[in-house]
Amino acid sequence: MDLNSYLIISSILFSLGLFGVITRRNGVAVLMSIELILNAANINFIAFSRFSGMDLSGHIFSLFVIILAAAEAAVALAIILNIFNNFGSINIDDANKMSH
């Protein structure tokens, strides 16, 4: 349970999230993959905070990341709902026009 094991876990999560973002075509699935990436960054913040003398600034940063993730999820889901209403599906390859 040293620093490296946390870093490896978070880089696995980051890679999985990036893989989801570039391969999935469903808007909600892309959003879930983005949440994975944000959580991977959060694990890094907390792990570095724990292993560098318990400096709690890392905790504050991860709190702000969680706040931003909440705001981002709300706005992104509103946009996805609009895409669904305008295009009839949430395949993000179809949504390549600003209007329909």
Binding site: M1, Y6, V28, L31, M32, E35, N39, N42, I46, A47, S49, R50, M54, H59, S62, L63, I66, A69, A70, A73, A74, L77, I80, L81
Partner: peptide
């Protein structure tokens, strides 16, 4: 495990209780 009790509770409250419910609504 990283001694971050407050962040762990916040994670459960906001992610599991908020964002995940929002995502299921979106689906």
């Amino acid at each position: 495990f990283l001694w971050a009790d407050f962040i762990a509770i916040t994670q459960i409250l906001i992610y599991v209780g908020g964002i995940l419910v929002l995502i299921i609504f979106g689906i």
